[in-house]
Design a protein around this nucleic acid. Sequence first.
DNA 1: TATGAATGAGTCTTCATTCAT
DNA 2: GATGAATGAAGACTCATTCAT
Lengths: 221, 221, 221, 221
Amino acid sequence: MLFLVLMAYISAMRPKIDPSGRKKSSFIEEARRRQIVRGAITTIAGGGLAQASLARIADDVGISKSVISYHFAGKDELIGEVINALLRDSNVFIRSWVDRADGARDRLRAYVEASFAFMAEHRENFAAMVDIWGSFGTVEAKRAFNATAYDPCRRHLEGILRAGQEEGVFRDFVPRTLATTIQGAIDGVMLQWVFDEDSVDLPGCAAELVTMFDLATRRLP
Amino acid sequence: MLFLVLMAYISAMRPKIDPSGRKKSSFIEEARRRQIVRGAITTIAGGGLAQASLARIADDVGISKSVISYHFAGKDELIGEVINALLRDSNVFIRSWVDRADGARDRLRAYVEASFAFMAEHRENFAAMVDIWGSFGTVEAKRAFNATAYDPCRRHLEGILRAGQEEGVFRDFVPRTLATTIQGAIDGVMLQWVFDEDSVDLPGCAAELVTMFDLATRRLP
Amino acid sequence: MLFLVLMAYISAMRPKIDPSGRKKSSFIEEARRRQIVRGAITTIAGGGLAQASLARIADDVGISKSVISYHFAGKDELIGEVINALLRDSNVFIRSWVDRADGARDRLRAYVEASFAFMAEHRENFAAMVDIWGSFGTVEAKRAFNATAYDPCRRHLEGILRAGQEEGVFRDFVPRTLATTIQGAIDGVMLQWVFDEDSVDLPGCAAELVTMFDLATRRLP
Amino acid sequence: MLFLVLMAYISAMRPKIDPSGRKKSSFIEEARRRQIVRGAITTIAGGGLAQASLARIADDVGISKSVISYHFAGKDELIGEVINALLRDSNVFIRSWVDRADGARDRLRAYVEASFAFMAEHRENFAAMVDIWGSFGTVEAKRAFNATAYDPCRRHLEGILRAGQEEGVFRDFVPRTLATTIQGAIDGVMLQWVFDEDSVDLPGCAAELVTMFDLATRRLP
DNA sequence: TATGAATGAGTCTTCATTCAT
DNA sequence: GATGAATGAAGACTCATTCAT
């Protein structure tokens, strides 16, 4: 599998409705694509990426195998769209939540809470995400995924943190490093929760992280 | 692939040197097994689990494909041993480091520092681990992995935290939840670092986490 | 190989044209299946079941190896269909011949003659059958084959013999035992003929058996 | 597998103790060979020839796999010896039983009774034999097996029948054809019995065959 | 737009055989 | 005599993809 191709595709972040009408992009076309992408996520979440052959996905969706081939250039493009969808949905949700908060302290709290709120409602998405991580075989693919998935999050967080420092409500730290740490904490808890949802008290962890980051970013007196 | 079988195998945690002499377990036999396991880790880390066919592993190790089949019952057993090795090495290292520390506060710091120290020296291991995560397709397999991989870590951390509360140096919190959170933070940072080592300041994050946990667990005045 | 599965399949005796339209069962689909089954019989008859790999069968038929995988769930299903075809053809022929005879004595003669007539025209079928016999490794598989292959024949014969006793034209004997014996005699001659067609005078044996059974079932004066 | 080689080997019918001392043929050598041959028969009878890999046979016997390779030129020679052993034992037994009878009528009865008596005591042998039949892929191999296995039996029977005709106790028939038929009847019953021993009344069939052949060979008045 | 059919590359696995000890 | 180790050939099977309809 040429994940370079795949990642190039992801990076392009093709907007859903391209203004130029690049393709036919008929309504039915887009509906089918979304249906297939959604089905792929479910299949991947349910049995792992390795078991998610086109045949199985098609079967789960209830369509013929070749329909997928017709609507997607190949499996790489499909998985690319899946990743796209997973990242997009999550990012959109978190951003909208954060935008509603005032002040760096509240925005940080909002970021964490939104992350966990979205998680709780879309376990399937994250199960699929974890399954897909292992597919980024090459160094380039991994790096590309990092640029697409992690960097936007880190930049978002970094902005909040830096603003807080400028506002004078946060102590001294390297914003970028703390952003990495915070995002890491969120993802790490998510990871355990994906592996066994019963073993993790998700709301408890969310609250604990909020408390912790509040305590840990507070300006030292 | 019957990962239940695999995970049962993992859970058994077959000690390397079985005292009963169940099999011959000749010296050369064990050496080969170790060589192959190590090679598999490298191959997986380098190209992803999906690309790590027995053929490629054998090729990387420089042996014939059937040598693997000779020394392992199948790919499942091999991957089982790989997981085993990954978990074992990490746990042994961290525990030995923690044991050398005095007091809950220092032990917590030691836990975090050891985790990052081991990481820094064994990036390949963690790349392989992330690749393997996606293989646990079924719910049972995921749960089994959780029990094998995460639970021991959480229990270890939980012990440290609870002791600290009893010593009176830690504030009030749910030890289990905080343990999940701390382990999550470590793993989440590791994850980003695996995806792009240049984008993460590993020592910086380690220091930040140590600081954060110190600030966040401190008994409030 | 799970011959239990296979035999379950055989026992089901799936009718060629399923009325419910369970699957599409398109014309071309059925044609291909029949082509492959026929080719498999030839290949098996020609070189033994052990040598009848999917590759060789495909080669003999003149198609790609994966075409077989496409039309059959696996080798087990293919061999199942082969057995099915072998038994079906033979049974249909014999029954139609017997049905045209009047009276128990003539029906018995018809049974023997039909068996040999069919044999003579379909040596390949019986060569394949003999080759397949050795594949029923487990006791269960053997028993299942017995139930599918031998029992119907014995019951058919048994019915003829019992009717003859009731008609008063046959002497006293255990119908079931004699049925086993008669069927055995037919198959045993067939066996030698399969191993070396030149060493067996098939029509002579047929005539001899007819005579023998006539003499041996005659009501003693 | 070169069954030509195998059959050539069988045909040679290597006497157990070769007078010329062709090989070392030490005592231990012969004992091992017999042990392995016996084990092979059991393994074949238990799971079919296809499952009877050298590894499994060795395992069942409780020796290392390479011991077989050491004592036999290859699997072909082993199977050759197995067939040899199967045929030899049976023939020796039947001949000795027949030799004890007086007169053609009694000798024929003895032949049938001996065949069934040996069968009843050595079901494993015949199960193995049936399994092996399918291995004779080529026409030459089948023919060779016919020459080795069937021809001696038919000649033996033929002799008895012809003598009976000369004595004037048997009616007119082609001895060779009737011999084929009688041997066929015995083997055919055996076959059903191998497939499901519970579905065949072996003593009943033996008695029925004795009666039948007596009635059917009797000189017509 | 949809799909049944076909296919070649690649996967794991089994196996008989060879060889050094 | 015996055997652990190694190996290449061959097996069944899966899969993404292509193509004609």
